[in-house]
Design a protein around this nucleic acid. Sequence first.
RNA 1: GCCACUGUAGCUCAGCGGUAGAGCAGCGGUUUCGUAAACCGCAGGUCCUGGGUUCAAGUCCCAGCAGUGGCUCCA
Length: 675
Amino acid sequence: MDTIEAPHPFCQLFVPGALAVQVRVHLRPGPVISSAPHEGANTMSVRSEDPADPQKAPSPESPEELEARLFRMRHSCAHLLAAAVSALWPQAKFGVGPAIKFGFYYDIELETPLGPKELDRIEQKMRELRKKKLPYERQELPIDDAIAEMARRNQTYKVELLKLLKDKGSTAVAAETGDDSVVSEGGGAATVSFYKTGEFVDLCRGPHVANSIEIGAFKLTTVAGAYWRGDERNPQLQRVYGLCFASEDDLKRHIELLEEAKRRDHRRLGVELDLFAFSDLVGPGLPLFTPKGTLVRRLLEDFVQGLQEPHGYTRVAIPHLTKNDLYKVSGHWDKFQDDLFHVRGKGGEEFCMKPMNCPHHTQIFACRQRSYRDLPLRFSEVTSVYRDEVPGALQGLSRVRMITQDDAHVFCLPEQVEDEAMRIYDIIDGFYRPFGMQLAVRLSLWDEKKPDKYLGTKDRWEATQEALRAVLRKRGATWVEEAGEAAFYGPKIDFTAKDALDRSWQLATIQLDFTLPERFNLTYIAPDGQPARPAMLHRAILGSVERFMAVLIEHYAGAFPVWLSPVQAVVVPIADRHNEYAAQVVATLKALAVKNALGGGIRAEVDDSRESMQKKIRNAQLQKIPYMLVVGDREAAEGQVAVRLRSGADLKAMPLAQFIARITHEVETRSDTPA
RNA sequence: GCCACUGUAGCUCAGCGGUAGAGCAGCGGUUUCGUAAACCGCAGGUCCUGGGUUCAAGUCCCAGCAGUGGCUCCA
């Protein structure tokens, strides 16, 4: 598994009303730097399987080579940062400092809290050092000498890494630290390499630029706390993040992309488009959905319900409170009781707000005797669960305390599992198709090194994981597998999407579970008259409705396709005397019977405010309303509307009937935004 | 929960020891307009909350609350 995300020249950007596209960040070859295999010490003794190995690069201009060069530059920039910090604060201790997508970071232990002022100072120092044309000198040391040297320099974290390297070899260290920058020669760890930049010496695999002057444009961005080796029991270091690109232009372009990402941030658009709000009195992580936001939710829920109906799903309803006993039996209690909202009844009974629905659904299964003839049973509902997330984790609609799920549980014969998973996959495909969203597929496996985090035997886990793998293969899917991401009761197929700031969020999920049926002793009567154990599938299509809304708002930058737009058309009368005709147009649109519209026809409004026509158009534009229908004397006389799209395109006047045919078709087919 | 930063009008922000400001939005009036901002006027603020320093605190200090970016977590 890769432990460092190699930098790559692409930045994903969503464009409104279109398939997600990849926008190329322009990378120019830039100044010639040490990329040739025969050049300088900095590329010496690089292992041939190293992804950054220049020997593997087919040509100096290839994208792979550009990537490798950027990666090297970013990595060297991290060292430059450390060198600068070291010069300013000689007592600083260093953790790990890898290259990451778009830049680098370095973890530093230092008494002085690093704020913006300090970042400025550090950045200035970095520029100073860069200009000194410091060579990046590689040297190799026997590991015991290395430990002694780092101990002499009081670099306790480096000593810790070296000792781990010595004992375990590099792979284990890389996996644990997320840093791949240390090298062991061969399987053991007899020798390690160092890089010297000015006075600063760092344990590092390399490769690096030959000279600091080869580092392109960089900018320190932020500082954050990060636990040493990712473990919250360890001390927290200060992690300084920076951007690094080949040229000033590239850096500037990237900063502009970040600004664009901010503009499409759902938290900002949610306020501007009046979709949802937060209230200090209600509390953090508890979004309030306005009429417009609620309409979008209802449309999404309606869509998914319609898709699953042909697959035999039936609706159920459960209370949002339960006795704790339910979760004690399910096995959740031990693991999650601290993350539940607890409620006390009058008589002192202990309840909690439900953090999930599966245990309740098992009780619907169990409420009467089931026959193999009844299976599969597919219980579904759109309902909320409540989780007491740590405050620092909350984030707009992406991470909330009341999560609305389009949840369902399928109880079936073990031999029906694959077919049911395929049906769920069908629903997911059908649902996501109109959005043109790029979803990544992940098979979430258990972590066999931590079996106590999970219920069930190793054999059971391996078998269920293989069952999901079979589904993915049959589907022709491309997926990644990740250990430790499974639910405690079983493996999952997870579908994730990225938000405007490039953070991944889980949306749809298919989870296989042989554990809960056992814990709740669920049985059906098999053909032989004996009780048998059903299998259970958990699934969600949108995942969390709130999170899905967040991703969707950013995906479309707020410009929803017509079928999802809270207001689909604004009629703009040119002067007051056209208000009456405008009202007629709206009445006609609203009276239509349109599929996928939740009743009420086309959602149209008159803008009869006392503004100029231009201002009304601007207002509709800012609200990202797909259609503006301008009506003046000519349109009123001829029963027409002058159609303008939010793209700015003017479709000119057309008979109202023609517009109706157009918009109705778009809504009913859930087609994407008009161009 | 941890680290850093931020909190001034509905929104975006300026002011950074000495009488609270702008643009947009809102309200009132004038204008009735052909595809992204007509004009004039009015109103609007315990400067997040609570303590402290000071003759004087949006402004400095402390604590809390909330938000932002990370870390940890994410059934």
